[in-house]
């Protein structure tokens, strides 16, 4: 129960952070990606702030014996670069650049612009289901449940 409550609180804080930072607004994300236009560097500061705190959290978590609510850390351990990683990231990049939406913001704005966000989220879920048809997708370490980056 505590695990579920903390997941809810963490998801809520994540969504509030997306709203405060402006990253829940696809137009603002596209303004960052549009480097030859009227460039808005805000996304770089969002990433810098987020990475700094997430790195601190990781350093603390690694020194502790275990997380407070779980028996162990479940984080990705692979360090090799494989074609799937690069291909997947590139496909993701095309979609992100077309709409300015990625999974977190798309879910966060479901109640704000319901028709557009739900359309994108539904297509995204279909895309995720299509991935399951990729041969050996389920047995690849990169697809192990819950340890995706």
């Amino acid at each position: 129960m505590a695990k579920i409550a903390s997941a809810f609180a963490v998801g809520l804080l994540f969504g509030l952070g997306l709203l405060v930072s402006g990253m829940a607004n696809p137009a603002k994300v596209l303004a960052f990606l549009d480097v030859t236009g009227r460039w808005d560097p805000s996304l770089a500061l969002v990433m810098a702030g987020a990475v700094a705190v997430s790195a601190a959290g990781y350093l603390i978590a690694r020194r502790r014996r275990r997380p407070l609510l779980a028996p162990r850390l479940e984080i990705p351990t692979r360090r090799d670069l494989d074609p799937r990683l690069i291909t997947g990231a590139a496909i993701f990049g095309v979609g992100w650049g077309l709409a300015g939406l990625c999974p977190g913001p798309a879910l966060t704005i479901l109640t704000v612009v319901p028709a557009q966000a739900a359309t994108f989220v539904a297509a995204m879920v279909v895309g995720m289901l299509l991935f399951r048809l990729v041969p050996s997708a389920a047995s690849k370490p990169s697809a192990v449940q819950g340890v995706d980056a």
Partner: peptide, 18 residues
């Protein structure tokens, strides 16, 4: 907002280990 997103990721790791 970035600090809030980072805090969310840090807390999730420290509490749920995820």
């Amino acid at each position: 907002g970035g600090l809030m997103i980072g805090a969310s990721a840090a807390v999730f790791l420290l509490l749920n280990g995820r």
